[in-house]
Design a protein around this nucleic acid. Structure first.
Length: 593
DNA sequence: GCCGTTTTCGGCCCGACTGTTTTCAGTCG
């Protein structure tokens, strides 16, 4: 077992899932709900917005929903000593390889155990050998089919596809939807799952169809020209693999019951579980078919053709898919107090853009001229924008040179405001002169005060030393935010999806500072960043901190990415009022003065 | 093992699909 210092949330979640699997083997019936409890705790930890170790440091483990007295005690021991006697006892005697095997789709606790035990093997490589030599098919309860499924799963796990970024998932789904619409029996079609909830990354693509001819629709689906393989095809659902090993699932339902299907497969799983638990208390049982009385299986199912009527029947407002994460939306919907979420049309400005104006920056320079960017912003009906090139590099310039470069940019922006903006734009009225400044490892800024004076306002962000300890990182950021010209903490976690975890800082401390000093947190709309992440946006919004939306565009086309920033804002419960660049130019000017 | 808008005790979401079986277990979402 790894020591506590090495264990991040994902690893702890995996450990708890292994404990759940161990209970499943030992006595699944007696431990039925204990297993669920461990799995729920694992889910909660995986989705937590702060590192469990940090929560433990602050004695806040029990604030994580799903972690109660018992699991908290075991985790405490884990963090203190590097291991948990209880976890080890539960997993004692089980072959470690089984947990590795369980990562293959189709292999759960029991299958994993039997493969490891009965074949006497210790690795995925051994498993592959066993499958290829036909040993698996000979085991009782297994056969040729299960053996070749395991082989396929092994093959696919090698090129393990990472979760897709949202724009890629949208484009892939659009291709399938276009194909499906060619079939006359498709009456309605929607995306489902994390794609419909607009999550930052998407695993599988799920699609719903309303139809009176399920067989025909599923048949059409499994003839999708681009598919590489069909996984399964039943009466109501089918799954295929399309290029890049992306799984696409299709669910069909009659139009009268389409609302329940949409609701069910939009998820999230946790939202649905919470919703069904609530319904059960009112004596109702929910499913993808509709709603019926819980303790009367003969009771006719009430059908819903849309989601609005489904939620209304439960006494709730319709809940926007972005909020369906079981993080308070059910309670809010019951008291008709869901927030009016911000929309793309509310946005009046883009507050992070890099042009090709060369101030000999420390990082990459934009590809489009300031004029090209302004024209694009004008076509998006923005009232104002901010040019936020990176600061001139510190290593290649002395202070005087940095100031000169910034003066040049100031003059260029002033000139644009006097002439180009007035003569060319129908909606853009002003261009702000800003800068995205590196936060140096000690918290200093690589721009002298005389340079700062040329700016209307500044962004600061982390581009180096990503792995400082939490306390050092926190004071580093706070020091940078102190400068009066600095208004925005840009891409605050500095995460890159599928590439780099975010930095560790004391968020409550940062939030508190921002609130007291009127500093804003950016929602960076670049699909690879989407930073602040939605869960932290939700916490910031709750605290009343203002958010600043920017695309971080390095090309005029990049301005179109604002839609992805909006998905994050909405998933974080943000309303128009929480976002600075929904303000008119006049209001915004007041805010930065 | 967790949790509280019927509960600090007694509940805990619901159904589809597959493979290997002759009625079901395992897995998944």
């Amino acid at each position: 077992m790894k020591t506590s210092k090495e264990m991040n949330n994902l690893q702890i979640a995996e450990l708890l899932r292994s404990v759940a699997a161990a209970y499943e083997l030992k006595d699944a019936d007696r431990n039925k709900f204990r297993i669920i409890a461990y799995q729920r705790a694992a889910d909660a930890i995986e989705h937590a917005s702060s590192e469990l170790k940090d929560l433990w440091d602050d004695a806040k483990l029990d604030e994580v929903p799903g972690i109660g007295k018992s699991i908290a005690e075991h985790l405490d021991e884990l963090f203190r000593t590097g291991k948990s006697k209880h976890f080890e006892a539960v997993m004692k005697g089980l072959p470690p390889a089984m947990f590795e095997f369980m990562e293959l789709p189709g292999v759960g606790a029991k299958t994993g155990f039997r493969l490891a035990k009965e074949l006497g093997i210790k690795s995925l490589a051994d498993l592959e050998k066993a499958a290829k030599s036909g040993k698996i098919a000979k085991l009782e309860g297994f056969g040729e089919e299960s053996q070749s499924k395991i082989l396929t799963a092994l093959e696919e796990s090698k090129g393990k596809t990472r979760r897709m970024l949202l724009p890629y998932a949208k484009a892939t789904a659009e291709g399938v939807i276009e194909w499906m619409k060619q079939n006359k029996s498709v009456m309605e079609i929607n995306t489902l799952g994390s794609l419909r909830r607009e999550a930052a990354t998407v695993g599988d693509i799920d699609i719903a169809v309303a139809t009176k001819k399920p067989e025909e629709v599923l048949g059409h689906f499994t003839k999708y020209p681009k598919l590489t393989r069909i996984i399964e095809k039943g009466d109501r659902t089918a799954s295929i693999i399309v290029p890049s090993d992306i799984q696409v699932d299709l669910m069909v339902q009659s139009p009268e019951a389409y609302g329940a299907l949409l609701q069910h497969f939009t998820g999230s799983k946790h939202h649905n579980i919470a919703l069904r638990e609530y319904a059960l208390k009112k004596g109702l049982s929910l499913s993808e078919y509709g709603i019926r009385e819980a303790r009367n299986s003969k009771h006719e199912i009430r059908k819903f053709n849309d989601e609005e009527s489904f939620y209304k029947f439960l006494g709730m407002e319709w809940i926007p898919p972005e909020l369906r994460e079981d993080s308070g939306e059910i309670e809010s919907a019951l008291s008709q107090k869901l927030p009016v979420l911000v929309e793309l049309a509310d946005i009046k400005a883009d507050l992070q853009i890099h042009s090709s104006f060369d101030i000999e920056t420390s990082h990459d320079i934009g590809a489009s001229t300031m004029e090209e960017v302004i024209e694009r912003a004008d076509s998006l009906n923005y009232e104002y924008i901010a040019f936020t090139e990176h600061n001139p590099s510190k290593s290649r310039h002395n202070e005087k040179q940095i100031i000169d470069l910034l003066m040049r940019k100031r003059e260029a922006v002033d000139k644009l405001n006097y002439s180009f903006v007035k003569s060319h734009c129908k909606s853009v009225q002003k261009v702000f002169n800003s800068l995205e400044i590196d936060i140096l490892p000690e918290g200093g800024l690589p721009v002298p005060d005389e340079g700062m004076d040329t700016l209307d306002f500044a962004l600061v962000s982390i581009h180096s030393s990503f792995d400082l300890p939490r306390e050092k990182m926190t004071s580093r950021v706070l020091k940078a935010l102190e400068h009066p010209k600095v208004r925005v903490f840009a891409h605050p976690t500095a995460r890159k999806l599928n590439e780099r975890e975010g930095v560790e800082v004391d968020w409550p401390k940062i939030f508190d500072f921002c609130l007291k000093n009127d500093k804003w947190l950016e929602i960076n709309a670049d699909p690879i960043r989407l930073d602040l992440p939605d869960t932290l946006v939700k916490e910031a919004v709750k605290e009343g901190i203002m958010l600043s939306m920017g695309t971080d565009a390095h090309h005029k086309n990049g301005l179109d990415n604002m839609q992805y920033g909006i998905t994050v804002a909405r998933r974080g419960w943000a309303t128009k009022d929480d976002i600075v660049n929904t303000r008119s130019l006049k209001e915004f000017e007041k805010m930065i003065s």
